[in-house]
Simulated scan of single mutants.
Amino acid sequence: MDQASARPFGLRPVELPGQLAVGGLLLAGGAWVVRGVWEIRLSMAGEPASGPPDQGDGVHRPLNALEDSYHFVTTLAGGAGFLCALLFVSWLWRLRDNARALSGEEPRYGGIWVYLGWIVPILNLWVPRGIVADAFETTAPGRRIPASLNMWWGLWLIGMLSGVGLFYRDSTDEIIARAYHEVWPLLASDAAVVGAAVAGAFAVRAITRVQEERMRAGLTAGEPVGALPLS
């Protein structure tokens, strides 16, 4: 019987979900790099004589080819971000459940917060990081949290709160107008998002590796594992 089939009830392999989450993070980071490149192109091209795409009072002029391609790029980036979110949450759910099974302790945050923690205002400033940190600390008591985790979360917050990064308050046409006149805030926010994606990939790899090592060590040593039901 191999290790995979010998896993105690309540433990599930986390390595593949971790790899998928890393891939999703890097894909999203790459998509934001492309966004930044298009914003630079818009800035260098300059605003057309006809003015911004959104003319105000509900009037929009026809987009030129570059502006139209930016809409396409932002749509692809949004899709990459959505896929990244699905893969990351799937990894996080498994990480949390494994940590509970390994420790026999209830997680600090209920299972619903794996989803709601990202979208509830104010709470989304710390709950997602708290879920990851709690899973790590219960998996490996006494071990220092990877620096990449704090770096990921700090850059994520910058990208989220800047208003020009992850959660835009303006329409795509309004962002195009920003790129024409003041591109640097857009690029700074894009850089924060890309940095968060890279740091997040390192954090996921490090935390996944620690949990897999703990599970393998427990199986080898015959360590008792709490067989708590999954939620």
Results as ranks from 00 to 15, higher is better:
A199K: 01
A199C: 07
G200D: 04
G200S: 07
G200F: 00
G200L: 05
A201K: 03
A201L: 09
A201Q: 04
A201R: 05
A201F: 04
F202Y: 14
A203W: 00
A203M: 08
A203R: 01
V204P: 00
V204E: 03
R205F: 09
R205T: 12
A206E: 14
A206D: 14
I207W: 00
I207F: 01
I207V: 12
T208H: 07
T208P: 02
T208N: 06
R209A: 15
R209Q: 14
R209P: 04
R209V: 05
R209Y: 08
V210D: 08
V210H: 00
Q211W: 01
Q211K: 04
Q211H: 06
E212T: 11
E212V: 11
E212R: 10
E212M: 11
E212A: 12
E213A: 15
E213W: 05
E213H: 12
R214W: 01
R214N: 06
R214T: 11
R214H: 06
R214I: 08
R214D: 10
M215Q: 11
R216W: 08
R216Q: 14
R216V: 13
R216S: 14
A217K: 12
A217L: 13
G218L: 03
G218K: 03
L219E: 12
L219K: 06
T220E: 11
T220P: 06
T220K: 13
T220L: 14
A221W: 04
A221T: 08
A221R: 11
A221M: 08
G222Y: 02
G222S: 06
G222I: 02
G222K: 07
E223W: 11
E223H: 09
E223C: 10
P224D: 08
P224Y: 03
P224V: 07
V225H: 07
G226S: 15
G226R: 07
G226V: 03
A227H: 11
A227R: 10
L228K: 08
L228N: 10
L228F: 08
L228S: 09
L228C: 10
L228Y: 05
